[in-house]
Design a binder for these strands. Structure first.
Lengths: 325, 325
DNA sequence: CGTCACATGGCAAGCGTTTGCCATTTGTTG
DNA sequence: CAACAAATGGCAAACGCTTGCCATGTGACG
C-alpha cells in the first residue's frame, strides 16, 4: 500500500476559502468563529480527511496533549491495572498516553525521562526505581506525579498502607495466629518498606511477633528460597512482599508437602491477575490499581500544587489463609 | 516544583559560537561536522542539559521516530507479551513506542488510528477488531503491520496456527482421545477462526470427531456456560478458544465435581501468565508473544513490501490434559 | 604554483500549527 | 443616524528543528 500525503490545515483553508488561522480556530476555539463558517470548515475537513498534526500543534502551542506513564514492568499484572486506569483517564481527557517500560532499571528510567521529557506535558511514574534526587530533578523539567512512592515536594498517589497492613494483621490475629514472618522484596522498594513498617506496628499493637526475612526477588522465582526460610522460621503465617512471591512460595510449600492453609497461612499484596485462581486461591491485599492510575492522571492534568492522594485498599480473603495450626 | 524553560538548539549554538544547523548536524549526521567542533557541541549540550525536541524534529524531517501499538486489552497477559517485545525492539532502534488500548472496540480503534496517525511513523495492530476495509484504509495513511490477523496487501506476523492445532490434536490423539469439542470465542475473532479451522482439519486427518460450541466470552466469566456445554457434550477433551476461557472452564468443572484431567482433558491457547500456576496447571499452546511483538516492529521499521512472517508456536504440556477416560 | 576536490560551516527556507494584533463588518444604543 | 462595541476574519510572526544549497578553507596532485 502506498502512503498518501496528509492534507494540512492549508488544504482545508483553501477548500473553504478562508485563512488557515480560521481553520485552526474552528478546531481549537470554537466560539471564536462564526458557526456557519465553522460548519463549512468542519465539513471540508471531513471531506478531505484532515486530521490536525500533533507535532505541529505542539510547536505552536507548547502543549503536547500527551502524557507519559513509566512502569517498571509492563507484564506485571499489578502495573497493567495502573496502565489501564491511566489509559482511560487520559483518553477521557482527549489526550494521548505514551507508555514506557523501565525494565526495573534506574538507568533506563532516566533515559526515558530525558528522551520523552520534551514530548509530553507530564509524567506519571509508577513505583519509580530512581533515587529521590533524580525524581526531583525530573519534576523540575516536567510535571510529575508518583504512584506508590513518596518524594517530598512531588505530587503522588499512594495506597493506604497503614490501613492495609492493619487489615492483614487483624485478619491473621482473628484466625489465632500469634506470629508472622514477612518475606521481603527488594531493599530499594519504597512500598516494601511501607508494608513492613505497617505490619510491624500493627503486630506490636496486637502483641503479635513479626519478623522480616529476605530480601527475595519479588517474582515466582523468588519463591523457593523464601519458602525455605519461612518453613525454617516455624511461623504459622507468612506475609509476602507481593503476590508473585506468594504464589512462588505456595508452589514450593506444595512441593515440600507443607499444606496451605492447614499448616501455614499465606498472604500476599496486590491481588494480581491469577491470585484468585492459583492454588489455593490467595488471600491478598488488593490495591485499586485502575483507580490509582486514573487518580494519578487526574492529579497530573487538573490539580496544581503537590497533593498526596491516598488510594483505598481492600483485603481479599481467600483460601490461602486459615486458622492457626 | 517550578518548571524551567528547556534550552534549545540555538542556546547550544550560541554557547559554542556556531550556527544552529551545525548543532543539528552534530546530532543527526555526525560525519558531517568536524570531530572537534562536534565534541564541543556535545559538551555544551551536556552542560546546558539540552535534549532535542521530538516535535520540532518531526516537523522538520517528517519522521517522528515513534510507532504506535494498538491492543484490544492491555491487561490481557497475552498482549502484555506483545507489548513487552515491541517495547524492547522499539527501544533498541532508538525510537519511542506509543501504546493504545482499544478496549475491544472497533470505534475506539478507529479513533486512535486517526488521532495518532499523524504523530507516528507506523502502527502495529495486534488482533485488530476493525473490518478489513478500515484496516486497509489505515494502511493508506501510515505503515501498518498486523499481528495475528491477515488482511490482503497488509504486512503481518501470525502464529503458525496450522502447526499449532496439529500439535494439539496429536497430543490429544496420543492420549487416546477420540473426539474433542472446541469452545469458541467471539465470532469476529480472526485467530479463533484459524484455530477452529486448523483443529477441524487436523482432527479429520486423525479421524477424530471435532465439534464446535459457542461462541463464549473469552474471559474467566465465559467459563461457566462453556463448561456446562462441554459437560453436556460428553466429550473427553475440550479445547478452549484461549487460556482465560480454559481457566474459567476448569473452575466450573471443579465446582461441578468433574475431575481434570481424569474425566476430561482441558487445553487452552496463549500460555498466559497464570497458566502454569492455575489448578491444575494448564496444557496450552504457547505463542511466542514477545517474539511476535518484536518481529512486528522489525517488519515495520526495516522491511518493505508486505511480508507475512510466521511465528512459531509450542505446546506446553501440563497437568490439565491426560489419558482419555 | 595552479587546479580541483573535498571537508566544513553558514544561510535561509521550510515543516503545520497557534496566537497576538489589526481591519473590517455587523449590531447596538442613545 | 452617529458613535461605539462586539463579532469575525486575516496577517504574519513565532515554535525548534532539518536540509538543500552555497561559500570558504584545506590539502593533494600534476
Amino acid at each position: 500500500m502506498t502512503i498518501r500525503r496528509r492534507p494540512t490545515i492549508n488544504d482545508v483553508a483553501a477548500e473553504v476559502g478562508v485563512a488557515a488561522s480560521t481553520v485552526s480556530r474552528a478546531f481549537t476555539v470554537p466560539g471564536r468563529v462564526n458557526p456557519r463558517t465553522r460548519q463549512q470548515i468542519l465539513e471540508a475537513a471531513e471531506r478531505l480527511g484532515y486530521v490536525p498534526n500533533p507535532a505541529a500543534r505542539a510547536m505552536g502551542s507548547g502543549r503536547t496533549d500527551t502524557v507519559a506513564l513509566l512502569v517498571p514492568d509492563i507484564t506485571n499484572p499489578f502495573f497493567s491495572g495502573i496502565i489501564k486506569g491511566a489509559e482511560r483517564a487520559v483518553g477521557a481527557a482527549g489526550k494521548t498516553l505514551v507508555l514506557g517500560d523501565t525494565e526495573e532499571s534506574p538507568a533506563v528510567e532516566a533515559r526515558l525521562l530525558e528522551r520523552l521529557g520534551p514530548a509530553v506535558d507530564g509524567f506519571v511514574l509508577a513505583a519509580p526505581r530512581l533515587p529521590d534526587a533524580d525524581v526531583r530533578r525530573a519534576a523540575t523539567r516536567n510535571r510529575v506525579v508518583l504512584v506508590n512512592r513518596v518524594v517530598p515536594d512531588v505530587a503522588c498517589v499512594v495506597a493506604d498502607y497503614e490501613s492495609a497492613t492493619r487489615q492483614v494483621v487483624d485478619h491473621l490475629a482473628s484466625l489465632g495466629h500469634r506470629e508472622l514472618v514477612f518475606l521481603a522484596g527488594p531493599a530499594e522498594s519504597w512500598s516494601g518498606a511501607q508494608r513492613w513498617a505497617g505490619l510491624e506496628t500493627a503486630a506490636r499493637a496486637r502483641r503479635m511477633l513479626a519478623t522480616r526475612l529476605g530480601p527475595y526477588a519479588p517474582t515466582l522465582d523468588g519463591g523457593p528460597a523464601a519458602a525455605e526460610a519461612a518453613i525454617a522460621s516455624g511461623a504459622s503465617a507468612v506475609v509476602c512482599h507481593n503476590d508473585m512471591l506468594a504464589i512462588g512460595v505456595m508452589r514450593r510449600l506444595a512441593d515440600r508437602g507443607v499444606r496451605v492453609p492447614e499448616e501455614v497461612s499465606v498472604v500476599g499484596f496486590d491481588d494480581i491477575f491469577g491470585a484468585d485462581f492459583c492454588h489455593p486461591p490467595l488471600t491478598t491485599l488488593a490495591e485499586r490499581t485502575q483507580e490509582a492510575g486514573a487518580a494519578a492522571i487526574e492529579v497530573l492534568l487538573h490539580r496544581s500544587g503537590t497533593p498526596t492522594v491516598i488510594a483505598p485498599t481492600e483485603l481479599k480473603i481467600r483460601a490461602s489463609s486459615g486458622p492457626a495450626a
